[in-house]
Design a protein around this nucleic acid. Structure first.
Lengths: 353, 353
DNA sequence: TTGAAAGCGGTACCAA
DNA sequence: TTGGTACCGCTTTCAA
């Protein structure tokens, strides 16, 4: 016998609660289990029954309750996406791609956008509560936090981050390689006085990019002045001012830790210093965001292969949701050098190590 | 007597499943109900017990299961955010703001980013499954879809959209008013030959903005050439080319349905037509995105009050989650005219109706 | 203040 | 292929 859904009046009118599988079962004249099977692919159900049930479901506007099924299957089809700077011109693209790809696999995104890269802990508490199947994190997670993921057996994939000390699956764009390329090409074109505008001190991405650039400069017997920005447009402005002061205006190549600062620096060079870019000053960035391609800038930069990277991140995550014991793996993608007109870049003149 | 969590071995080692309130209860030597109360504010629990429980919870890394509690309370603390063009420079800010504000109220964002404004239906099915407490939609919902929200008693707030026919709570920036302002100021500065680059035909925002501009032009005895773009940078380029051809180069004021197209048009005017902006051609946009303020553009535009709008959207939604029977309400916000240097704008010369 | 017990809306195993 | 039933992990009466 069917149990009647208790919140439903005899009139057939929905009083308050949502439609349940019991309601559908009753209307279709089958058991509740049968209804459940109709919505679970691969269950054995007679086509005729199935049709009757789906019709009833349609009529009542029934949709299975994801909470209830998640409770018993231990699969919520939820993935947490943790992002710090949503307004950073680069992330919307990443977020859109990830969301799209996951949804192709029937997985929804629970979004956590942190104002600062701190307060991660309070956010993680929420992540645990929702029993997400996995997470993609584009922000710094401490070793303790990473261990927490492991302990709870929640697979996590880092995006442009690296599990310091902990072995964690991650997807990265090769910052060091990209910067080395830029430096080599700038040196080949005869630049002498280098300046670097770094990102925020606590940004892993910035650290890597700056390290890549400085190391290569040193290897080739050059040095650079360095100043710190915060990855935004105005940092490019402030950074260039600082470097021009330090170098007494002798700067001829400026390496920015991201495109946004490079764009700010270009505008600043033109307006505040009346410099011609790239004749007087070469400026390079990193990321390959859309505005970098705008004709006012035509930035020379390293474009991150966002498609392939998000693809990899999602693939790696799904694999690990399927089998949490897969070994960690770091996939590094080379960025593509875009030869814009914001910098004089020569083909490599000297044989390189 | 306590029921032992069945998935836990005698060794105290976690085998597979997450920690449950039973585990915490056992460790703390209290009933499972007591544990539950500790995590529900306002429940009566002795401070001493509470402390013991929280300690045990801490030790085990316990976090209440949101699915289970959502199932029984019928509150998931989940809000669906439906967005179409995540890559549109304007939305990241909106999304970040909404997420932040909701999280202040203990509510998480379930993100649905649609590639196109179609396929909404398949996405809504997912929304229903997760029993979200409410939704914020920055895309077009058909009257049928809106009625579905009503039928299921899921409060929804539209963002820069309007419930066509249906009475739906919504938050809008006054497109018509903004465009009228721009038109008035352009006319006052003596512009004669107007062009408009519209957004995609199916975009409500674009329709409103174009309508606002055209109506005002007509009221004041002017007309405009119109071409259609798709809200992106290259549409500005293509749009200007189209309009210059149509007008045989006589255009002196260009109204773009958003900033991105205006920026594209500025670059195009300078590079392809060697025009000086604004001396030869005035260009205005709409939105007030970050790049509009970059010194290469200094766009004259209408800035949407994103903070106040997201605030309003979240407030309205929370109110309606509290009381689904609140009447619909439309809050319209005036945009702020930004007098950049991309257009010659004069103070209003003639008395206006 | 505390504990026992009855669900919330499904899934999955079992026997029929 | 079907229906019955025991949970999933929590909240919420209800008595004690």
């Amino acid at each position: 016998m069917e149990k009647r859904s208790p919140r439903r009046t005899g009139t057939g009118e929905n009083v308050h609660s949502a439609v349940t599988s019991y309601d559908v079962a009753q209307l279709a004249g089958v058991s509740q289990s049968a209804v459940s099977r109709c919505f679970r692919p691969g269950s054995s159900i007679a086509p005729k029954t199935r049709l009757r049930v789906l019709e009833a479901a349609q009529q009542l506007g029934y949709a299975p309750n994801a909470m209830a099924s998640g409770l018993i299957t231990r699969r919520t089809n939820l993935v947490a996406v943790l992002i710090s700077n949503l307004t950073n011109l680069y992330y919307p693209e990443v977020l859109a791609e990830i969301t799209r790809r996951l949804s192709d696999h029937g997985i929804r995104v629970l979004l956590f956008a942190l104002p600062a890269e701190s307060e991660v802990d309070s956010v993680l508490d929420q992540v645990w509560r929702y029993r997400v199947d996995g997470a993609i994190a584009a922000l710094r997670l401490s070793p303790d936090q990473l261990r927490d993921f492991a302990r709870r057996r929640v697979p996590v994939v880092l995006y442009n981050r690296f599990g310091e000390g902990e072995a964690v699956p991650s997807v990265c764009c090769d910052s060091v390689g990209g910067e080395r390329q830029l430096v080599d090409r700038l040196i080949a074109a005869g630049h002498k006085a280098f300046g670097i505008i770094a990102g925020p001190d606590d940004s892993y991405v910035s650290q890597e990019r700056v390290r890549g650039a400085r190391e290569r400069l040193e290897e080739r017997g050059r040095s650079a002045l360095v100043t710190t920005g915060s990855f935004d447009y105005s940092s490019g402005n402030a950074g260039l001012h600082a470097l021009m002061a330090q170098s007494q205006g002798k700067l001829d190549a400026l390496i920015c830790a991201n495109d946004l600062m490079a764009i700010g620096a270009i505008d600043c060079a033109r307006n505040d210093f009346a410099l011609v870019v790239p004749d007087d000053l070469s400026i390079v960035g990193f990321d390959g965001v859309a505005p970098a391609m705008w004709s006012s800038y035509q930035l020379s930069t390293i474009r991150q292969p966002v498609r392939r990277m998000t693809q990899a991140a999602v693939d790696m995550l799904l694999e690990r949701i399927g089998d949490p014991d897969l070994p960690p793996e770091v996939r590094t993608f080379a960025g593509a050098l875009i030869e814009g007109s914001s910098a004089r870049l020569a083909a490599r003149a000297e044989p390189l190590p």
